[in-house]
């Protein structure tokens, strides 16, 4: 096998491995996503604990409801929040702005 081909195979297997690792983390991937609604009480706790980890805490009044959705999803990526924590925090921020 040529070196180039070997590299391509290696990259593809690494990518596949990555994707399957993600699938294993939640066996229910193929099924519908669990969409438990955000909970304001849990959201308040998660907000206090998580939103000071990297920067000064941002006032809920700074942004509109829709802007808090994109921002919190962006922060989910940065902080490694779960989907449920994200929905809870959005519920809290939308209630407090």
């Amino acid at each position: 096998m040529s070196k180039k081909l070997l590299m391509t195979v290696k990259t593809l297997s690494a990518s596949l491995l990555l994707a399957s690792a993600a699938m294993i983390i939640n066996p229910a991937v193929a099924a519908d996503k669990p969409s438990t609604k955000g909970d304001v009480g849990r959201g308040a706790k998660a907000w206090v604990e998580n939103c000071v980890r990297c920067h000064n805490v941002r006032d809920p009044k700074e942004l509109r409801d829709d802007q808090w959705i994109t921002t919190t999803y962006h922060m989910r990526m940065r902080a490694g929040l779960t989907g449920q924590q994200t929905r809870d925090i959005i519920a809290f921020l939308q209630m407090s702005n």
């Binding site: 994707a19 993600a22 699938m23 983390i25 939640n26 229910a28 991937v29 996503k33 669990p34 999803y73 989910r76 990526m77 779960t82 989907g83 449920q84």
Partner: peptide, 12 residues
């Protein structure tokens, strides 16, 4: 482009 696969993983 991020795809939220489930509550615990996103593909970026």
């Amino acid at each position: 482009i991020d795809y939220f696969m489930n509550d615990y993983a996103a593909l970026v």
